[in-house]
Design a protein around this nucleic acid. Sequence first.
DNA 1: TCGAATTTGTGCGTATGTATC
DNA 2: GGATACATACGCACAAATTCG
Lengths: 250, 250
Amino acid sequence: MPFGEQPAYLRVAGDLRQKIVDGFLAPHTRLPSQARIRAEYGVSDTVALEARKVLMAEGLVEGRSGSGTYVRERAEPRRIARTGYRSADDRTPFRQEQADERVKGTWDSRSEQEPASSAVAERLAIDPGDRVMRTRYLYRIEGEPMMLTTSWEPLALTGRTPVMLPEEGPLAGSGVVDRMAALGVVVDNVQEEVGARPGLAEETLALGGVPGRAVVVVSRTFFASGRPVETADVVVPADRYRLSYHLPVR
Amino acid sequence: MPFGEQPAYLRVAGDLRQKIVDGFLAPHTRLPSQARIRAEYGVSDTVALEARKVLMAEGLVEGRSGSGTYVRERAEPRRIARTGYRSADDRTPFRQEQADERVKGTWDSRSEQEPASSAVAERLAIDPGDRVMRTRYLYRIEGEPMMLTTSWEPLALTGRTPVMLPEEGPLAGSGVVDRMAALGVVVDNVQEEVGARPGLAEETLALGGVPGRAVVVVSRTFFASGRPVETADVVVPADRYRLSYHLPVR
DNA sequence: TCGAATTTGTGCGTATGTATC
DNA sequence: GGATACATACGCACAAATTCG
């Protein structure tokens, strides 16, 4: 590669990117196949592949195995409303996470007991090794994976009660506040710490992306009278969602 | 690849990641070279390369050509407290943006009049082309660039008043709420929309980073009786800061 | 319904350039 | 200069998914 020149895969990616942003390749249309790219640009299979990977990492296109590589439509990112408030009759965790969109949400979850890691222990103000209930959620919106959540609750609080498992029993799916209320624990405030980082491979896989794409991470902790009763990590793809906070100014 | 198994490069990447987060591979130490990875894990050169690429995309390691692949150090990100509240005697915008750290903050700013872009106009509920006062801030903490802010205020509101320029006059540096109060405008709530994206070249230059690394962006709008009176974009490097929201649960 | 062709995704071996030590 | 290691590139093979006759 001569001095000052770009690598071939970046040159090919750049050319295809131009065609996409200029509209010559409209959303939902197919990119030239790997074989066609190879022929059109006079490059090898590897270069064509790397070029497609660059565009996929940028979120511009989407590979469908056996079918082709398709231009994505770049929708305005959805708002996810974050508030401390939850009404009692709101049975799904979705209304809280995702308030201003009236769309069907579904979720899978799996709960397991485990000893608290030092990070989780600090967030819950318990000792490392104390037993906690860990629950993983994958939320989908219109079938699309949207949000990964992992929550931890101290078993010292919920153990041997009807709400020990968040997604079973009479209050299944009603959320932390109501489940804690059933134990006489009044959740009165929540802290959310928002950051962003490149997504881990497993996360971007579950959320339908490629490693390296940015994700927004919320570390949320619910408190009852100053005592943490639940903490969770919420992970959403940064290019598709924004968190919306509405705060009073006193 | 048998069903249910991970691709080889993800397995290798996962193992190396584990060693990094568990501390077996400390920051600034070198990863096994591609050749060593190939030997240790019994995989090909391609797989070893792909595995390294995954970790580089995740920001965990950094490849230095001719030298090796090194573990990055991840400083615990600082908290930036975000609340609607500002006390009247709090003269600096810093207490709001960055409340729980008691460190010296400084800032530069520059204000200019301009016609509102369509995006800004929508946020301020005015017509595109209406004149606004745009002010750019660069905040520093202990001399280090920390945060870029661009704010827009409708001149229909502040024009020909003592608070037209945010950083001049009697209320210089006192923040939107107090300056609006001087006009009899009572700011009562604020909306913040948090997202993340790869940093633009100018941004990462001003904030001291590399292009392409993620930044957290807050679109903030102050409202007085439902009417937007100021909107701003706040940009911070994602790897060094986290936004902290504390909300009541009713 | 079946099968062939296409396409993506993963993986392998090798070669070469170039930066660092 | 030589050795090492990353970065790019080429060509090939095969599995899985999809498409289409």
